Simulated assay, not measured.
Amino acid sequence: MKKTKLIVDFEYDFELLGITSSAKFHKLCWSLNKGLHTHLVKIDDHVAHDKAGKEMVILNAKHEDESCEIYLYKNKSPENESQLILPEMPHFDYVLKIIGCFQTFASEEVLKQLRDVKYIEYIAGISMDKLKSRDNFLH
């Protein structure tokens, strides 16, 4: 009997930025709010799945206005430090997901603005093309 496989191709209309910071989650949110003039607020924990299919709970915060949405995720699960929302890049402590805003500006200009935010030690764009765990960022 012939089997048919369903392949779903999602549209990833957001940018991901990896952040290295030794600051606590709430302190980084506060710093991003001051530096970017946003209002990141802690929301319900994000639930994603690791490679083995086990659920993992991820801390996250959200800013939303008419033009954009910004999410800040902690890369490591508070329940199990070995579970990462971005397992390909364990060197990042946080992941910033940007939907909508900043798309009219040059990416380099946004990164420059974020590099000036207090408590961010390193920040870099993440290419979605080769990222296997990109489905973890779909809501």
Rank of each mutant, 00 (worst) to 15 (best):
M1A: 14
K2C: 01
K2A: 14
K2D: 14
K3L: 12
L6K: 11
V8N: 10
F10W: 04
F10D: 10
F10H: 11
F14W: 07
L16A: 04
L17K: 07
L17M: 14
L17G: 00
L17T: 00
I19Q: 00
I19N: 09
T20V: 15
S21E: 05
S22H: 11
S22M: 04
A23N: 11
K24V: 10
K27W: 07
L28W: 06
C29V: 00
C29P: 01
W30C: 00
L32C: 05
L32R: 00
N33M: 10
G35Y: 05
G35N: 07
H37T: 08
H37A: 12
T38E: 00
K42Q: 12
K42W: 06
K42Y: 07
D44V: 03
D44E: 13
H46N: 08
H49V: 07
H49Y: 15
H49L: 14
D50W: 04
D50R: 01
A52E: 15
A52C: 02
A52I: 01
G53F: 08
E55A: 13
V57S: 11
L59A: 08
A61R: 03
K62M: 15
H63C: 06
E66C: 10
S67T: 12
E69Q: 11
Y71V: 06
L72M: 06
L72H: 01
K76F: 06
S77T: 07
S77N: 09
S77I: 00
P78C: 08
E79A: 14
N80P: 05
N80F: 13
E81T: 09
S82Y: 11
Q83M: 13
L86I: 00
L86A: 10
E88F: 09
M89H: 15
P90A: 13
D93A: 13
D93F: 05
Y94W: 09
Y94P: 06
Y94L: 04
V95C: 11
K97C: 06
I98W: 02
I98N: 08
I99W: 07
G100M: 07
G100D: 07
G100T: 03
C101K: 10
C101P: 01
C101F: 09
F102L: 04
Q103D: 15
T104I: 05
T104V: 09
F105R: 12
A106D: 15
A106T: 09
S107R: 15
E109K: 14
E109W: 04
V110L: 15
V110H: 02
V110W: 02
Q113N: 10
L114A: 03
K118N: 10
Y119E: 15
Y119I: 02
I120A: 10
E121Q: 13
Y122Q: 13
I123S: 05
I123K: 06
A124V: 06
S127G: 11
D129C: 05
D129R: 05
K132W: 00
K132H: 09
N136V: 02
F137Y: 10
F137R: 04
F137T: 01
